[in-house]
Amino acid sequence: MTAFLSRNLAARASMLASLIFLTACAALPRSGPNKPEIYDGAVERGGDAQVIFVNDHVTRASNFTPAYGFSNSFRNASAVGADEIRAGDVLGLSIWENVDDGLLTSLGASSSQLQQIQVDSGGYIFVPYAGRVRAAGSTPDQLRQVITTRLSEQTPDPQVTVTRVAGDGATVSVLGKVVGQGVYPIERPTRSLSAMLAKAGGVAIEPEIAVVTVKRGNSTGKVWLTDLYAGASNDIALRPGDIILVEEDQRSFTALGALGGQTRVPLGNEMISAIEAIAMVGGLNSNLADPTGVFVLRDEPEAVASKVLGKPVYGSQRMAYVLDLTRPNGLFLARDFYIRDGDTVYVTEAPMAQWRKRIGAVVGTIGSVNSVQNLAN
């Protein structure tokens, strides 16, 4: 009876071992698809991705990097006149009269001070005895002449001075990662983008990752902060109503597969090659990675895809660029192939890694069987 039970348990253990073995071989854990599975997604095999082996032509054709910079409409805009009066500005008037009892002066006084006169939305101010005077578009001196002419009809030889304080009519909004957000007037020292950023206290993040966006009406332009200071052409003149936004660059790529790390990686403002991208996440996993199966996955614009494929295509294309680092020039090609915003860098597992996993699964299964048999005995 005991021998029968032992044989029964042994048979069940053998059956259990077989099931575990088959299951382990069919569904081993892994970091993603292998090379043949990616190749099966190629257009030539009925898939929807263009699988392209990287060579010198591909690196030249695909190394298109959208650059930040201002359009000619931003660069050619003239600087705001430092003395030009606009609606919303605040003016101060001083009026002297050559009579003891003047129109505007009190008895015994020689002058009258009219301070904090704001230019209305139509561009006008009101001056007693001169009436409603258009101020917007004039300089303080031009406005002084107009007011003097009108007062001359009421009092002999009036003397007028006009001072201007920038107001709501010539301001920009500075937002985002700056020390002091706010609405700032465009004055003589702050008529350029760099000067206005300095007025706001400078940026509050690392300059190397700072992007400055300027919104003007329906147009928008952006530039790296480092490029702003490197080239005078990017230091554009500001216009009333501009919105300046400083933010951290959001461009990134994703690293997956048999790498030292799987994560989303910021690109920064540098040109990152495939080799640098791999290094940024700890390099290839020496126990798992297949150096012949380094893929860069991206949606390629129509114009770039046509150049890479050597034939016209329509619409954006899903591209799977293949880098074989074991080829004589493989490392050089990877060094010359640049990563773009939104790319996925994926490294497949080596066949040997899968084989080791199967062996590990079998060894583990045998250990389980032995344990069951020991119990049976």
Rank of each mutant, 00 (worst) to 15 (best):
A3V: 15
L5Q: 15
A11V: 13
R12T: 08
S18D: 06
L19V: 12
F21C: 14
P29I: 02
R30M: 01
P33S: 05
P33M: 01
P33G: 00
N34Q: 12
A42N: 10
V43Q: 08
R45M: 14
G47R: 03
D48E: 14
A49G: 03
I52S: 04
V58K: 05
N63V: 03
T65G: 00
T65Q: 10
A67P: 05
G69T: 09
N72T: 06
N72R: 14
R75N: 05
R75T: 12
V80P: 00
V80H: 12
I85R: 01
I85V: 06
G88T: 06
V99P: 09
L104P: 13
S112K: 15
Q113M: 14
D120S: 06
G122C: 10
G122H: 15
G122P: 02
F126D: 15
P128Y: 12
R132S: 13
R134T: 10
A135L: 06
A135W: 09
A136M: 11
T139Y: 02
P140V: 07
D141V: 11
Q142F: 09
S152N: 12
V160C: 04
V160T: 02
V162L: 09
A166Y: 03
A170H: 11
T171S: 15
L175W: 00
V179H: 14
V179T: 11
G180S: 15
G182A: 03
I186K: 13
L197Q: 04
A200T: 03
A200K: 08
G201P: 02
V203C: 04
A204I: 09
I205W: 04
E206M: 13
P207Y: 09
V214N: 03
K215M: 07
R216P: 10
S219A: 12
T220H: 00
K222G: 14
W224V: 00
W224K: 01
L228S: 05
Y229Q: 10
N234E: 13
A237K: 11
R239C: 01
G241M: 02
V246G: 03
V246M: 04
E248L: 08
Q250W: 05
T254V: 13
T254R: 11
L256T: 06
L256K: 09
A258K: 00
L259Q: 05
L267Q: 03
N269S: 13
I272Y: 05
I278S: 00
A279F: 00
A279Y: 03
F295P: 02
P301L: 00
A303K: 12
V304Q: 07
V304R: 03
S306L: 01
S306N: 04
G310K: 02
K311H: 08
P312S: 03
V313A: 00
V313Y: 07
Y314I: 14
G315F: 07
S316V: 07
Q317P: 01
R318A: 08
M319R: 08
A320W: 06
V322N: 05
L325K: 04
R327E: 09
F332R: 07
A334M: 05
A334E: 01
D341K: 10
D341V: 05
D341S: 13
G342D: 01
V345F: 01
M352K: 11
M352A: 12
I359P: 12
A361V: 02
V362D: 04
V362E: 05
T365N: 15
S368W: 13
N370C: 10
L375P: 00
N377H: 09
